[in-house]
Design a protein around this nucleic acid. Sequence first.
RNA 1: GGCCACGUAGCCAAGUGGCAAGGCAGAGGUCUGCAAAACCUCCAUCACCGGUUCGAAUCCGGUCGUGGCCUCCA
Length: 479
Amino acid sequence: MRLTDTMSGQALEVEPLRAGHIGLYVCGVTPYSASHIGHAMSAIVYDVLVRYLRWPGNRAGGYEVTYVSNYTDVDDKLIDRGAELGIDPLALANANIEQWEREQAALGLLPPDVRPRVSTEIPAIVALIERIIAHGHAYSTPAGNVYFRVQSKADYGKLSHRSIEQLRTGTRFEPGEDKEFALDFALWKAMKPGEPHWTSPWGEGRPGWHIECSAMSQRYLGDTFDIHGGGIDLVFPHHENEVAQSEAATGRPFARLWVHNGMVLRDGEKMSKSLGNFVTVEDALARWSADAIRVFALSSQYRTPNNLTDDALEAAGRAVDRLATALEAKSTAERGAPSVDASEARARFVEAMEDDLNTAQALAAMFELARAINRGRDEGMDIAAAQHALYELAWVLGLRLERESVTTAIDATALAEAASRFGVAAGAEAETVEALLARRAEARAARDFATGDAIRAALDGLGIEVKDTPQGAEWTVRG
RNA sequence: GGCCACGUAGCCAAGUGGCAAGGCAGAGGUCUGCAAAACCUCCAUCACCGGUUCGAAUCCGGUCGUGGCCUCCA
């Protein structure tokens, strides 16, 4: 499979370091507040990448994947926020992580194999900083800070395609900083009162922002590993600094391939915590199904920005219904009837996914399969195998394609009234509805369509949709 | 100002040299007592200008516009 690599700017073939195995590291969130759709978008993209890599149906026959994604639970924003709210920053991080993990499950995101946190990886971080210092690429200061010496790495800027000279313009020393050079960045920050702190060779303090990802990725995946991913806004400075630190410590290449997903926009502007224009995952899940959110995220190429609008989500929801309907279609095929052939759609799906995770085109293949299934059903063909294939492809994209479970309660009083109006005994909810439908069937059989339609209208008023099928009436409650 | 993307139908969006995928919405039709679903048909000369080519949405140059990064950010 090919993926666009940010470092080279080229779509590169994924060639595992170790045959049949892929190591993937993805930058997770800094849990200082609730997660928003942008985080979901990113998580969905890498979730689909992992699902596809593991899928035996891919061109390589399926890889074993070690998927590592971190939580940055020690950070300036967490400390600031904690101070604002008067709670311990680690407790705040914990609470937000717990919520995000519930939301991840709701979004159908497969849990990463390892979810390291800064607070539990301090020894690895300290050890890494020591190696960087030993190689002359970092220095400690009397105040107890450790900085990375940017100018010691000739290739600094190679990921984000900029030079130290370019970056230098407009960068100034902040007052009171004890760096050698304005672009040098902190690997270790000396303790300030009231902040979380750990013991280190440089005194009490805490890790800087970028070092944790170097330490965690290398600890769990090795000095060099296959794929590193994250949001495109992390390219500089976060990932640039990660490369510099990691390669400074090991003298070996860091990630072999860098994948970056595009941002979610809201009203054409980047959605971010700092701009405050975000839609939280919680709010989104209250309005739209997980499948709809996924289809929204996957209907464009992962690198292009995705503008979140109500229309787009509603359209995605209807698109999901279309796939779900094809999956639910009941076969009327006689024994020995010809089968709907899914192999073409499947091949197109695979080809799309192999080509830089082209989920938009993969979805198109699924819609074509859905149409073939519906047509096949109308023509009395055997659709079971094709439905199974569609279900399998849906799994790869993480779509459940199940009807939403009933969440809206039916107004019991109104239902009982309807029952008495049409001369039916009221009992348990489902029984009453079934009794009303039986009454309607009688009326229709007697060609008393006025009564039949009145019952349909009454049920519709209660949020119950009635659908006539050759097997009789079916009913569903609108969610 | 520097670096990187992008501009395709009413909306979302794929397509990187050879008759413009797919979804949503819309129009017409089939089926149905009705309704829903489904199926069939229809709906774009690809921001603008110039160039390369037998041939360009696709390559090159320019113009205009949008977004991201250059400070925390998925």
